[in-house]
Nucleic acid binder design. Structure first.
Lengths: 229, 229
DNA sequence: ACAGAAAAGCGTATATCCTACACTTAACCC
DNA sequence: GGGTTAAGTGTAGGATATACGCTTTTCTGT
């Protein structure tokens, strides 16, 4: 024990996660109904408290695993919210993360908290505390990251068609893209492996499926390549 | 008191600031010698503990004011460091901020902590704990922000010449820029007001001074303008 | 007072990238 | 076999980024 530290006060630290999915051409987030006071029963981000023996990153992974049933999700620290009165129950500092989930993997997963529910961003309910602000910040960050890093693939099935990828980017950027220009740009990076299979789910003709080549990407990055869409 | 909260543990929260200045064509940071154990006497970022009745932003401003003597500095929250063993004294979560100072205003300011010292980034000493990592992250962020937002002006005197601005950007990007292209680009934005005065400090000929027009910038932003250098 | 030094200031040509745009193809359904 | 639906393809024009060298100003030193 060091005296100097003890002159200061300690605080509760929460970790809150903005979990994104992509389905039916829309961006969605996973929310759950808060089960303790205050604001019990209201919609909230998914979160929990930081424990003694875990790093902040670890806490975020623990919470993500608990609510999604999935580990090794893409996740990035976002921002720390520290207004004195942000939580009317007690003073709590919240460190936020956003995470990306392949919704179909989530749906196949059974072992998890069941009170969570997917909401389309555009029709989500009002959230408790400052959680709406957190969502806004997460969306801003997602837009920037999706443009400069190949994280979009974390929201799509491992095999996807170019039109599906485009519709994801349209959902993130909130604007329509030209399909010829989009295809040209993404394929010119040589990061997508074309497969033999087609996705027949959407059109009669079917669209060829592709896979993101993570290895190739890492090699290119070493050589100074910079992803941009 | 709400029982649920009390099941969790509280933690010390520190606020650490990476304070940038620009002088003699170099980016510098303000460091100070730590005055308590552990690591007493070693070089450290400028920081302090979050108190009960203040928001995190407020704490950052308080600390910046205390060490620089200046208020209303440009400042942005950076990242939160939460490894369990990052501070060998006690478990402390650190929320970091980076801030930009006009060094000449700092030098004119007398009321402040005196143990702080400016170090050129390229020749700074090794810092305690994970503070070197924090500096790396701050530099990354500074590069991105300087490119997309007019924050460079926060590091220069209110009146500055185009060559001085260029040398700032060269220091931030760590590469040389073409002076004709640089001048063309920055002046074409119409954000700099040309003054009658010249800066005779650097060359015999002297370079015309300019001022950043914050008002014009805000108006342009409303119309959808996006700064980029 | 003249020569030299040192940085400021200026314009154009070329390459690259972004944008706009419309028809054909493949497969299924009835 | 005709209709429907989304997939897939190329090119031209405009805008933007890059590369590049000479002249001007003023101070300094002799």
């Amino acid at each position: 024990m060091t005296p100097y530290y003890e002159e200061n006060t300690k605080h509760y630290i929460a970790v809150d996660c903005i979990i994104f999915g992509f389905d039916e051409g829309e961006l969605k987030i996973l929310l759950h109904k808060r089960n303790f006071e205050p604001e019990k029963g209201k919609w909230s981000l998914i979160g929990g408290f930081l424990q003694d023996n875990e790093s902040i990153d670890f806490a975020a992974r623990r919470i993500l695993q608990q609510y999604s049933g999935l580990s090794n999700l893409f996740m990035e620290q976002l921002y720390t919210f520290g207004e004195v009165e942000r939580d009317p129950g007690e003073r709590v500092i919240s460190v936020t993360f956003y995470a990306l989930i392949r919704i179909e993997e989530y749906n196949n997963q059974l072992k998890r908290e069941t009170s969570a529910q997917w909401w389309p961003i555009s029709r989500k309910p009002t959230l408790i505390f400052d959680h709406d602000k957190m969502v806004v910040k997460a969306l801003e960050r997602l837009k920037i990251r999706a443009k400069n890093q190949p994280i979009g693939f974390e929201l799509l099935p491992r095999k996807f068609s170019v039109p599906r990828l485009q519709s994801l980017y349209e959902a993130i950027y909130q604007r329509n893209l030209d399909k010829r220009n989009f295809r040209k740009k993404i394929l010119s990076m040589n990061l997508l492996q074309k497969l033999e299979e087609k996705d027949k789910g959407v059109s009669k003709k079917g669209a060829f499926l592709y896979q993101f080549d993570k290895r190739k990407y890492s090699k290119l990055v070493e050589k100074g390549f910079h992803f941009e869409l």
